[in-house]
Amino acid sequence: MNNLAMHRRMLGDSLVTSCLQTRRHLQRYLDGEADPALAERITRHLDACRACGLQAHIYQQIKTAVCRHATEPPAEALERLTAFAEALPRQRT
């Protein structure tokens, strides 16, 4: 019995459909791009479905790992650019 058939048997057809929809929209959900109604449905599904919940967890871990590349821009560069931007209108008008 493959995973889909097993889930169908264990969770019922309606939830299996939700599995497909959940995985289709999972990235958008994790990135905060899903609309509130969709996000609510996905949240409920992830709580109920172990397989989808695990997949979401893995993708969230990946996002977290990638986020560690984040660095703050150099403060000096930000100051120079802000000063440039603030002076620009006064120079040009």
């Binding site: 930000l78 650019l81 931007a85 603030e86 209108p89 008008t93």
Partner: peptide, 28 residues
């Protein structure tokens, strides 16, 4: 270069400051 009058210039400057300055860090 645009050549707005003084009042327009002030408005334009304020608009630029409110629209652009908060985005400098993201742009960088």
């Amino acid at each position: 270069e645009p050549t707005p009058d003084a009042a327009g210039s002030t408005d334009r400057q304020a608009r630029y400051d409110s629209v652009v300055l908060p985005q400098i860090a993201v742009m960088l």
